[in-house]
Design a binder for these strands. Structure first.
Lengths: 197, 197, 197, 197
DNA sequence: GATGAATGAGTATTCATTCAT
DNA sequence: GATGAATGAATACTCATTCAT
């Protein structure tokens, strides 16, 4: 499908993905392509050779992340402790998100078919993890998989408000989120969970 | 200090704040000044007469909100049930944020001195509410006022990911956040709370 | 419909139309908007305030020209000598085109509804002139109005090939074109005239 | 002088000239080098190995055409009927031009010495044809060879304005041009013919 | 005071051309 | 020799901000 890249081209592609990830993380989603190119140490044109559109660049970053999270979710489905498996997954997700907010998932469908279906697969894998954790009594039964997916992006978002945040601060807020998902001390949630994102 | 505004000028100022709030809410933070002016029914120049900078306009909106939340926090400090008081405050905050994310607080200091000190007052009032709620056993004692402040913006953020979200959906995620703040079923939080935002 | 322009704005609009006409004439249709702005002595943004799109600028120029030619064609329809009337019209058209080739008429329809219908009116007026000239025996009867319209752009095109062409050189080639349209010495034309442009 | 090309190189050169001709014909003079390379089935770099510049590629195409027209003009000089010979030549020129407008001749001199002198030879041959046709009474004597050369590009230009033009439509306008060149019904031409193009 | 015209720095994107593989 | 990756100048267009009316 995708031709094997020449060594230098492959290298530039990685540099670009890395640079873009950092730039989006620090400047927000409207970081300029020019800045990304500069950070990657390549010419502006090179960005467009690899990603015909800024949106394609974004999609590529998200796709990477979504695919690797889905991979992880699927492998954790085999873990013996269902509750621990889910929480480990959430930790992995939160850690990754430190670098890049999950916001693009919002309109992933509009951007890219491939991305949209990768998202579906990720969501399905997470839902499975959640349901298994509920079966094991580790997660309250009045939350849905979608609720968990939505709360998954909380730690990185919260931490983004803290100027000199330490690299592990997200763990604190993930812990808080998880405690909210536990059966102990659960109170009624009010409105029903949304059907989809 | 602040000159009394002529009646029409005062009216324009309110129209602008309202228009800007709506526009930011629906188009995001990079809504254009021209659109805001059009929605307010005034010329573009008028926007800049009232707010020398787009950032100043934003700051004015946030200031309004911060001040009214601080007011509320102070009045709830008198309420008999300390836990209910805090939770009611969080509900009010989440409801307001539905229209405009709290993100500007992030760099409030850089934007505007007046805003920065309003923020300090708001934070102090929230910290007081939290400590009283902890004293009443309604909130776990290993969270700080700042933790609560940070979690306060979660519901509106989460809801922003849901396309056709109902107007009350934020209550669901506020409930989840609050359940995480309760003493029941609390697990250790890991990293220490940050000292400031 | 179109608000009355402020004096300075009206001035800029004319400056822009003039500058664009010259620039397009000398650099061809892909003269840059920046150059046009510079030639008009205004900022780049001003071009876009007056003409939202480069194509709109082009359309405005052509519309002016088309409308004034149509006007002329209609008034010449009253002239006593039908042949002379047509030839005078062709001279006027060729003279104007010296500054700007007629090429945009080619895809005028794609550009602009208003322009498309102005073109229709122009063509109708020319066809009327041609038919009257044929009735008077001044033009061979095997050519159509459309043929004449097509040949109308020949003088300016031909002259564009001559580097230091004098300002009246187009008259020489118009004379040649007109001699081809006369009944004397007419030979069969081969393929039928197209139905439309 | 010109090294003999390796067989494959020669082949690529032809492929490129053919591809470029087609691409220019259908996309206009700003067809992209990349598209030309793709159509020829070679890499972009190969284009530049053969033609250091896009302009050189254009010049090469024109040179081919100019040389073959000159060849034709010279051979037609032997034909018994001088008028028919000239008209046949014009038909050949118009037919070729259907694929590629003659416009580059305009600045041929600036582009390329070799092209400039090929053009001189072509013009000389045409002038000879014209003068012979005038001697035979087939062409009016107040036109110069240069006039005829200039009118030669009319048919393809005119036809370019007709959207769904049939492949022979140019013949109609060539007939019109030729009728203008005949002695019958000739009227005075006004300005003198230019000395050069 | 209000208006909207003018401005120009900034943005994504294209494309001829160069050069490492 | 051939390839296609890299480059950066150029282009149309946007928008916060200034200023003449």
């Amino acid at each position: 499908m995708t031709r094997a890249l020449r060594a230098d081209a492959a290298r530039n592609r990685s540099l670009l993905l890395a640079a873009a990830t950092e730039e989006f993380a620090s400047r927000g989603m409207d970081a300029s392509v020019a800045d990304i190119a500069r950070r990657a140490g390549v010419g502006k044109g090179t960005v467009f050779r690899h990603f015909p559109t800024k949106d394609d660049l974004i999609a590529a970053i998200v796709l990477d992340r979504v695919d690797s999270l889905a991979e992880l979710a699927r492998s954790l489905y085999q873990a013996p402790d269902a509750g621990a498996a889910l929480f480990e997954f959430l930790a992995a997700a939160a850690g990754k998100q430190q670098q890049l907010d999950f916001s693009f998932l919002r309109d992933a469908g509009e951007i890219n078919d491939r991305l949209a279906s990768a998202r579906e697969r990720l969501f399905a894998a997470i839902v499975a993890l959640v349901e298994r954790a509920q079966g094991a009594g580790a997660v309250r039964t009045d939350v849905t998989g979608l609720d968990v997916i939505l709360m998954m992006c909380v730690p990185s978002h919260v931490v983004s408000f803290v100027p000199g945040a330490g690299p592990e601060l997200w763990r604190r807020y993930l812990a808080l989120v998880i405690d909210g998902l536990r059966p102990e001390g659960a109170h009624p949630l009010g409105p029903a969970s949304p059907m989809s994102v």
